[in-house]
Amino acid sequence: MMFGEIFNKIRKKQSTPNEAPSHWVKCSSCQSLMYYKEIEKEFNVCPKCGFHMRISAQMRIELLSDVGTFEQKDTTLTPIDPLKFVDKKSYVKRITEAHEKTGRNSALISGSCTIDGVKAQLIVFDFSYMGGSLGSVEGEMIVRAINRAVQNKEGLVIVSASGGARMQESTFALLQMSKTSAALTKLTQAGLPFISILSDPTMGGVSASFAWLGDVIMAEPGALIGFAGQRVIKQTIGAELPQGFQRAEFLLEHGLIDMIVHRANLKKTVADMLRFLIQDVPTDAFELKIKQ
């Protein structure tokens, strides 16, 4: 009896995710248990079933940029609370907590780097910072990255992972949709490419603005991508949603994205697209191959 209670306590403690980091990771698709290093090596793709788990912004930068080339920008931009917004918590408190959790002031990391040798402006959303939500700081950082791309004649790569516009900034956040979309017209005028990568999840105001304006739009396998949240759609139509609804494969089938790219091939695919779409590539970089 006593032993049973103690055993249960220990078991409970072990199963609480926030205590003592576990070295074992369970794939949320095939349920296989794997040592964390094994899965980190694959950038959070399950080696057993190929399921793409979410990945931190830092890991994403390591995945895409060439070692040692990522130079972070615009780190001094900090959110303010223009509306003195308070729901169950104040927005100021949420900003502070997000900062403590991530060490950052925004839901994205922006910088310049090379991707397989191609210079680019790279932005990666961080879902762990307030659900990757789009607020004034994020909007401004995207605009600045676009401006740098135009100035340096480089391509722009954005990896989205976001629940949408940040409600605590209300209409300020809503208008970041038009702000970022309008800024992309400058990139078009300069003839420079924007590669948009939609990762799990890309929803609402982010999907309905810059994220869907990529010259090439890629998605990760299985990623949830769409305008309206599934709960809202279910409530509106009063029915269950079809299998695979709003997943990357569904989008490809409906002609809404260009390609689904496995994480292992993402870097090369992005770099190839940039090389292909950026003008003035020195021709001696390639040798002509003739198929026999």
């Binding site: 038009s178 992309l184 603005s209 869907w212």
Partner: peptide, 19 residues
Amino acid sequence: PGIAAEERGQSEAIARNLY
């Protein structure tokens, strides 16, 4: 917010107009 709207690219349509 509906199935057909997502199938036909609600996000894309809105984004395109903003642009």
